[in-house]
Design a binder for these strands. Sequence first.
DNA 1: ATGGTTTATTAAAATCATTCTAAACTGTTT
DNA 2: AAACAGTTTAGAATGATTTTAATAAACCAT
Lengths: 143, 143
Amino acid sequence: MTGLDRPENAAAAQDRIRASGLRPTRQRVALARLLFARGSRHVTAEALHGEAGGEGIRVSLATVYNTLHQFVRVGLLREVMVNPGRSYFDTNVGAHHHFFHEASGELNDIDAAEVDLSSLPEPPAGTRIERIDVVIRLRDDRS
Amino acid sequence: MTGLDRPENAAAAQDRIRASGLRPTRQRVALARLLFARGSRHVTAEALHGEAGGEGIRVSLATVYNTLHQFVRVGLLREVMVNPGRSYFDTNVGAHHHFFHEASGELNDIDAAEVDLSSLPEPPAGTRIERIDVVIRLRDDRS
DNA sequence: ATGGTTTATTAAAATCATTCTAAACTGTTT
DNA sequence: AAACAGTTTAGAATGATTTTAATAAACCAT
Ligand SMILES: [Mn+2]
Ligand SMILES: [Mn+2]
Ligand SMILES: [Zn+2]
Ligand SMILES: [Zn+2]
């Protein structure tokens, strides 16, 4: 019995969705369970859609996109852009940064505390900082 | 007489392209002139193609893409990804970072010296740091 | 529960940026 | 000038994402 099968996860997902002002539909609850069952994840829409299909959950790709963007809007997810033409959705919405392994396309979290951003320029007049993204791009170390 | 019209710019562009190991074709020279005539620029392929058309330079969009990617490969340009589905090409290839104004889609350079990146985590074993991108995302300051 | 209203899902088509293909052309070398 | 390799291009193809318009499900008030 995986964490996903446990009924309390369905209830928790439902609560989380309702708490953020969205209707807890079958599809949204199912996707939330996949997304939030375990710790930090970085998924593409395609990948999540495939994962859902593999678990026997029938959801259209359009709904996966809709749901991911809604989850971003209400703060359940964050969208990360490191790769041209493909968005990653991040279940870690706290302040943090990323290693991006260019060869594999894998993203790994870096805790905000590990990066010192105390020395930064002022934002231009009339603007405020929405968020700061630090991406450390990695290559395979072929010595 | 704009900087673009000056013949020495054509020669300079040609030299720069030849020096990086590419053939100085009509199209590449024309695009290099547009790109490097003035200081730091952040352009999309579409935008550069439109700009070329406006100056009476006939280049296909495929060639613009080819040229931009070749220029990236030989180090004349850098590719920046901040927006889903659209790449920016940056004429500033030195170490620096960016303000990204989400409302306008505009990118502005931040000198590397203005960001202190002395405190960073070690890259995972078997990998080395290719480059570090800091993007400060800005919103309009509606007080 | 039922009915009415609003919001969500979906298959399919459409869009948009980007890449590919294969044929015509150009720059370079001999 | 001929030969060759490298380049350009129109147009088709791709791949991710969005839109459409019809159907279905969630919600709210009987
Ligand atoms: Mn998006
Ligand atoms: Mn690219
Ligand atoms: Zn993350
Ligand atoms: Zn820049």
